[in-house]
Nucleic acid binder design. Sequence first.
RNA 1: GGGCGAUUAGCUCAGUGGUUAGAGCGUCUGUCUUACACACAGAAGGCCACAGGUUCAAGUCCUGUAUCGCCCACCA
Length: 877
Amino acid sequence: MGLAKTCEPQQIEPRISRLWEDGRYFTPDVDHQRKPFVIIMPPPNVTGELHMGHALTATLEDIMIRWHRMKGDAALWLPGVDHAGIATQVVVERQLANEGLTRHDLGRERFAERMWDWVAKSRGAIMHQHQRLGISCDWTRERFTLDEGPCKAVHTTFVNLYNKGLIYRGNRIISWCPRCHTALSDLEVEHKDLGGHLYYIKYPMARGKGSVIVATTRPETMLGDTAVAVNPEDAKYKKLIGRKVKLPIANRTIPIIGDSAVELEFGTGALKITPAHDPVDFAMAERHDLPLINVLNDDGTMNNNAGSYQGYDRFDCREAVISQLRKEDLLEKIEPYSHSVGHCNRCNTIIEPWASEQWFVKTDTLARPAIEAVEDDRIKIIPEQFTKVYLHWMKNIRDWCISRQLWWGHPIPVWYCHDCSELTVSMDTPSSCNGCGSSQIHQDPDVLDTWFSSALWPHSTLGWPDNTEDLGYFYPTSVMETGYDILFFWVARMIMMGIENTGDIPFHTVYLHGLIRDETGDKMSKIKGNVINPIEVIEQYGADAIRFATTMGTSPGNDVRLSYQRLEAGRNFANKLWNAARFVIQSAENHPNDTTLNPDSLPTEDKWILGRMERTIVRVNELLEDYQFGEAERQIHDFIWGEFCDWYIELAKLRLRSGTTPSPMPVLLHVLDTSLRLLHPFMPFVTEELWQNLPSKDGRASSIAIAPFPIASNEYIDPRVESEMNVVIEIIRGLRNARAEHKVEVSKWIEAYIRADDESAIKPHATAIEALGKVRPLSIQQKSESSISTDNAKIIVLADADVVIPMAGMVDVNAERQRIKEEMAACETQCTRLEERLSKEDFLSKAPAHVIEKEREKLVSIKSRLEKLKQRSSELG
RNA sequence: GGGCGAUUAGCUCAGUGGUUAGAGCGUCUGUCUUACACACAGAAGGCCACAGGUUCAAGUCCUGUAUCGCCCACCA
């Protein structure tokens, strides 16, 4: 049974997946004889389906892992999924909403059951979708952030950091999402410039006349004001410090304080202070010992501190306050004002700064070694420009709010006592208070930020805090490959926590890829409807095509615009390879005895393709070492399509048909086999399927996935062979060019003469030139035996040989004269330029010898060409 | 307000100091030539954003400018 005429991924992929699964090729053993190469996969959220970003991540990581596995390393790629706190809770809450329920209707326990039902479904779906991409990770080691092991790691870390004073609880300003009902870290707040207003409000002096005018963008927060601040250097207000103003609407009296944080130039120079709802004000309140008045509920409505506005939504309250102020003639003016407003990065709701009791990680101590690790190059970031970004963030890091008011996540291992103020922080559930021994204790109801467990991922997945064999062998890991958008969220925190927990860096290299965008450069989003679903694409174009489309020709850190054209290009390349292989395999069936490659008697084209392949292998290995996957892939693509298929196979066909010896069969098979192995990390399915169909299987690995990656021997790299073949290729191109230019019918055979300086270099290729240039007969002449009639001849001048094709009635001698004239002019210009360069003292003394030599050779060849052009020109008269 | 990136063919992008700057897609001309029309053959198409500088040599390094994009930042 032969191969299908077209590459059909839908037929191939399931079969190959099974082959890999049955072979257990992707589960490495701890083997101290071998070098480990380890990637811990960024765990996708258990929110549901994979998107294109995951496909890109998976592809890049698979390229690295497959390459190292083929090189003989113990390649471990550990997959997993993330419980993804808010994101997943939102998904399940939305399902409940469809049933007319909220999580409160169910209660914590039943809600947790729903969550785990969802996880079971989603976790399997993610694994299945990943497998369809053909990725070679070790599913036996798959982890979930809420598995027992990672949970133990989380608790251990929390307890350790608490005991070291690096985790603390405090009443501080945090960003609050009124829709998610939870605190967020600074990173989870997205700042967007919004067109708003700046409201100028009069605060009348408590005693005497006059007022102080303050400017604010959020007038509703004035209900929580506890002071007005001015700059002590401000001549205008200096004398007011210490006096009091009457807070309108609330009818409280609040002091005027002096603080240098107030900008003289901004607004009116007087600042209303709302410590419970603004970070700057909060800091100022701490300095001046001002009271905090919280006026907001957790859902963004006003609380009982807002007096008559209690129950108002914050934005309705703003309107109401403004109209009341207007009534009282306390609104000086309203100016349009564009400013940056924080939004929840999950639900896009405008966040509120809100003073509340939360847990924090003290980051400065943790950041120091994380900075050093990157500065002294123990951790290398690719592309390099992100090193600066990382260091800048790390050096300005602020404490990390880790408590979330959600029901889904790692519970905080802290218990409060009803009878005393002592906290019990413990790995295991305690039965009594550490301080007074009371059994009246209850656990903190909050959970940890999802990124807290993610920060431990590289070591928690390998078994930490237990001293497992995997941890000892596979940690530190090799490469952390992820998107640049989570450099701070994840990478930075993994470095801090990895060093803190294990004393060692979590990975040696950080490879950051760009974002997948649509063909117009927009981010893909469900709302915009421009999402390309990877599974649909796999079904339509095949997994190899999607892998090709997302990585071919891309470079680290740069965004990828994905289009259907790119996907088609991937599919087309797979099909091209498929058919080339099909040709080779079928030919091998017809020539079963031509199997041994004899290096001593190879024709030029054999040596040429082997040499070109070796060059490709050298280059590809260099590029892979250097994390230039897109460029490596392009090199392989260009070699397979542009050299192997376009030239070598075409030349080989002629020899196969005529039965010439030596047969090209061994070279065809060798180049195909090597090409498949070179390409395998990039396009695993089609290469495996074809490799399984290669005729000789003696002593070979059972899967291309564990076959050796090609290494160049440099045996066949020979510039003389390359230049000889280049002449042949140029002659053939010239002939085809001439035919096309003169619209000679494809079926028509024409005569041609080649005038060559070195007849012996061309003679062996005469048959090839005849066949591929479709000329017959072809005569090769010494340069001296000139004088070919030009009246009815079309003349083509080639680099190192002249080709003369007599074609009665088809010649335009004038056009040819013109062409030659133009080419001569171009040659002369270049000649002059080269002569100038070669006469410059500086060039000769400073440029490296091989560059000078090259320029000299170039000059010689151009001069000889010029000679030929002159001769031709004179023949034409 | 700081920082980073981009600017190369009609479009999307490679190009990591050294020939005449490349690829895919698109366009135009031919061709179903026994591996492949998801293909083959050929062609057209570039002041490498702009201005200076360094260098024997610059798309590539430096400085500045412009446009676009991104990240960070507590001026209400």
